[in-house]
């Protein structure tokens, strides 16, 4: 275990001040499920750990204008079980329910999951599919970053060292929308995915065409990726088996996987194709 000092600030301003003052020597933790592991293995060696877990007002889900405002410290398990999320943001609840196991979901937070920037996890693709925005507090005030611009690379995000993610705003899908999150793991579903896919579609009530499609692929690139070509293939079209299959192939070509212990590039593309088909079918059915 790395030796470090520990502080538990009681306001966001205090946390920001500490992180800014200590720069790269400080490490912010929320639930700690990912970071404490790395501290134990001495892969992270901060001098100071800033535990954000005591910050007030950053836990819970509330309705806010056209969507939800989700506090960064809300445990993933709370998202999964929250009645409001399950109602209007079902895709998010579904993705939350697939993160690791129940023990991890009780401790890990939404903000931590997003800020850790790990490519093989389930919430970021769902948040990106739902077009969420991150609000980040710094010494100069708060800024909003759309999730599309938030993930920069593996374990690298738009959050600067002296900043704290305070909450995520997730718009409520328009009527006629349906979402679905699917993943594929080797062994048990608690394991890290070979790949995962979040899809959010909107079906036009009169034409039955797909008014909007946001397919996001996870674990097959350094960041969760919008499958632009697949989305464009489907937008404005009435879904058919052939069209879904075509979009799935496009998505698998767009994916940028690397070979690792979970599979070869060939296999991951095959899995993406299967997952995109499954997610689309399910999302379209739910939209109807």
């Amino acid at each position: 275990m790395t030796r470090f000092d520990y502080v538990r600030p009681s306001t966001v301003a205090e946390a920001v001040g500490l992180l800014e003052a200590h720069g790269d020597d400080a490490l912010a933790i929320a639930g700690g499920t990912a970071t404490v592991l790395l501290l134990q293995k001495r892969m992270l060696r901060p001098e100071l750990v800033v535990d954000l877990g005591g910050l007030p007002g950053l836990t819970g889900v509330e309705q806010n204008g056209g969507g939800l405002r989700i506090g960064a410290l809300t445990p993933i398990r709370a998202i999964e079980r929250d009645a409001i999320v399950r109602g209007t943001h079902h895709l998010l609840a579904e993705a939350a329910s697939q993160v690791a196991g129940v023990r991890v979901r009780n401790a890990a937070t939404v903000g931590g999951s997003v800020c850790f920037g790990e490519p093989q996890t389930d919430l970021p693709p769902a948040l990106l599919a739902m077009n969420a925005t991150a609000t980040i507090a710094g010494s100069q005030g708060s800024r909003d970053v759309p999730l599309e611009e938030f993930f920069l690379g593996p374990y690298e995000t738009a959050r600067e060292q002296g900043e704290v993610l305070t909450h995520l705003s997730v718009p409520t899908p328009v009527p006629g929308s349906g979402g679905c999150h699917v993943k594929f793991t080797m062994g048990s579903p608690e394991n890290k995915p070979v790949a995962n896919v979040s899809a959010l579609v909107t079906v036009d009530a009169s034409t039955r065409a797909l008014a909007d499609v946001r397919i996001v692929m996870g674990a097959v690139g350094g960041v969760p990726m919008l499958a632009h070509k697949a989305n464009d293939t489907l937008k404005g079209e009435r879904p058919s088996d052939a069209l879904i299959a075509q979009a799935a192939v496009r998505a698998s070509e767009e994916a940028d996987p690397v070979e690792d212990l979970r599979g070869s590039v060939w296999y991951k593309r095959r899995i993406i194709k299967v997952l995109v088909e499954r997610a689309l079918r399910c999302a379209i059915e739910r939209a109807n």
């Binding site: 520990y6 538990r8 933790i29 639930g31 700690g32 499920t33 990912a34 404490v36 592991l37 134990q40 750990v49 535990d51 877990g53 398990r77 196991g101 129940v102 023990r103 991890v104 009780n106 401790a107």
Partner: peptide, 21 residues
């Protein structure tokens, strides 16, 4: 899961949480 304990009644892994938390 060998280190499972209940934190405010909810199961967590004690190996990846600081006692300070």
């Amino acid at each position: 899961g060998a280190c499972t304990v209940l934190l405010d009644g909810k199961p967590i892994s004690a190996c990846i949480m600081l006692a300070s938390q």
